[in-house]
Every structure is written in structure tokens, then in C-alpha cells.
Simulated scan of single mutants.
Amino acid sequence: MESIADQLYRILCDRITGGTYAPGSRLDPQAIATEFGVSRTPVREALARLEHDQLIVTRPRSGTFVARPGVTDVREVCQLRKGIEWVATGIAARTMPQDRIADLRDEAVEALRRADRGDYEPFFASDSRLHNEIVAATGNARLIRARSSAEPFVLWLRALGATGRRRVADSTRRHLEILDAIAARDVEGAQRAAAVHLDEVEQQMVADLS
């Protein structure tokens, strides 16, 4: 069972990463407590987690605000992802079951078809699942936890950026290159494709913020 603080964290995180709360907007702890009919204690706990995730900032004598991500944030998050996922992709190329690889590949191809019709949600779901499944395939709890800690910020940056058919197609092409190399048990090829993909993601996100 989720605690009240956990539920609040999830709801507030979704509101930030989904764009309901715009960057720079002020969060009123008392208003949040009143909205959900809870005390200030779970609100403080939820906000502390959001601050740890660097989704919000607290300024003395000013209040709590949704953060405004910048180029430095993008580079730091992408460097973290690249370090984790480069290692994870190499391990996945040795351990991920072929049926799971095939499932992820089919999902990526179908998501691209849906994007062609203007529906980008399947791509977002496929993208998140692919990267998380690759890290999960390591069985390394510390790698999984480190990647999970960056996930809210990754989702937020994606929501703040541009989405289009060409960008989805480019990402899908890289996803298929990664999966095909993993299926072939080509460790170096999988890691190389993952590194190129994450470099391109970083360049795109920096361009969006610029």
C-alpha cells in the first residue's frame, strides 16, 4: 500500500512532468494539503522527494517553485543515462531473452505506425519501456535504482521538448539498431548504438531549450 506521501509525490510528479505545473510556477504546501484533505506532514515529505529529484526548488523567504531546467540539467541527465545505459546495454546483449527483444521490437514498430497517424503516446510508452527493460535485464539493483531516480526528470524534459514524425522516426531507427544488436549478441554494436542514440537525444534536448 502506498503511503499518503507516496501518493502525493506521484500525483505532483505527474503534474510537473505532464506540464500541469509550468516551470517557475509556485507550489503552495498549504493549498496542496487542503486540496487533498491531508496534513502538512505528507506534503512536506512529497515535496522533499521532488526537490531531491531536482523537479522543484525551495528559496528561503520566497517559497517552493517548479524548477526551470537548463542546458546544464540536460547534459547532466544525459551523461548519467549514457553511463548507466552503455553498461546496461552491454549486459543486456548477453542476457536479454529473445522473446522479450522481439516484443520490444514489435512495440517500437507499431508505435511508429501510430505516430504516422499523429498519435505519439505509444511511442512515449515504447521508448520508456525499452530503456527501462534494458537496464532491468542487468539484474543490477543499483543500476536499476540509479536509472529510476532520473526517470521523472527524463520524462519532464521530453514533455518540455518538441515532438514530431521525423524525431520519432529517428529515435525508432536507433531503438531498432540497439535491439537488433542485442538480438545478435553483439555487445560492442549494441553499446555503440546506445551511445549514438543518447548523444542524439542530448543534442535534441539542448536544441529544444535553446
Rank of each mutant, 00 (worst) to 15 (best):
A67E: 14
R174D: 14
P23V: 11
T20D: 11
G24F: 01
D53K: 04
M205N: 07
R10N: 03
I32N: 02
D6K: 09
R26W: 06
A93M: 02
T41A: 12
T41W: 09
R15M: 10
T95S: 01
Y120T: 12
E177Q: 15
R147W: 07
I134P: 05
L50W: 04
E110W: 11
S171C: 11
N140Q: 08
R75K: 13
D103C: 00
G63F: 01
L157Q: 11
R61C: 00
A159L: 01
E51S: 03
Y21I: 01
G24W: 03
R185N: 01
L12F: 08
M96I: 08
L80D: 08
H52L: 05
S149D: 07
V135A: 00
R49N: 00
R114S: 11
Y21S: 07
F123T: 04
R114F: 09
T172R: 13
I144M: 08
E151S: 01
D6A: 03
D6N: 09
I84Y: 00
E110L: 14
L160Q: 15
I56G: 07
P23N: 11
V71S: 13
R174A: 07
V109M: 12
S25G: 06
A102E: 14
R185V: 06
L27K: 06
A108E: 06
V43R: 11
R75N: 11
I11T: 07
L47N: 04
G118F: 02
P97A: 01
V154Y: 03
G18A: 11
A88Q: 13
T64D: 00
S148H: 13
F124V: 10
L176T: 09
A190W: 03
E45M: 04
L179Q: 13
L179W: 15
S25I: 10
A181V: 06
G189S: 15
A48C: 05
Q30V: 10
G37M: 05
Q204E: 13
R94E: 13
E202H: 07
T172H: 10
P29R: 12
G90P: 08
A146N: 09
A102N: 11
T163S: 08
Y21R: 01
R147D: 04
A184P: 01
C13K: 13
R145Q: 12
T58K: 14
R113S: 04
D99I: 04
T172I: 12
I84D: 05
T20N: 02
R185L: 00
D106F: 06
I91R: 05
T20S: 10
A183Q: 11
